[in-house]
Design a protein around this nucleic acid. Sequence first.
DNA 1: CTTCTGACA
DNA 2: TGTCAGTA
Length: 137
Amino acid sequence: MAATLDVDVDVKVKSCLARAVRISELARRGGVSPRALRYYEEQGLLRPGRTAGGYREYDEAAVRVVQHIRLLLSAGLTTTVIAEILPCIPDDVTTLAPTCPELIDGLTEERARITSSIDKLLAARAVLDRLITSGPR
DNA sequence: CTTCTGACA
DNA sequence: TGTCAGTA
């Protein structure tokens, strides 16, 4: 009888609660300098919108993105590879987006580089340990 | 007062 | 990356 006109107004648009933040706030909340944020953008890591006056306006989600960038950067990844894998990282870093599994090869390579760095660091520490232990008593 | 772009001891 | 200049 009655028409099932149940329009799915599932306004799960997270954009509704997405307040725009400007560079100084994102910098403070992301733990980086405004200068760094402009640099990230220059490297294609961030694509903020612009206000009528030319001010950059970032999405609320940009805070997490910035933190991801910091993590990846500290892991030794270059800004160019980060720019490639960033769009594949969901809100949660622990899960890799199924949309780009091809990058797994590249990520595996990066993993190898990190492992190599760790090995070199361990070797350096071993040398220091010997020096310290054999020092003046 | 804050941000923007470009530039450089 | 910080910072200064000259604007908007």
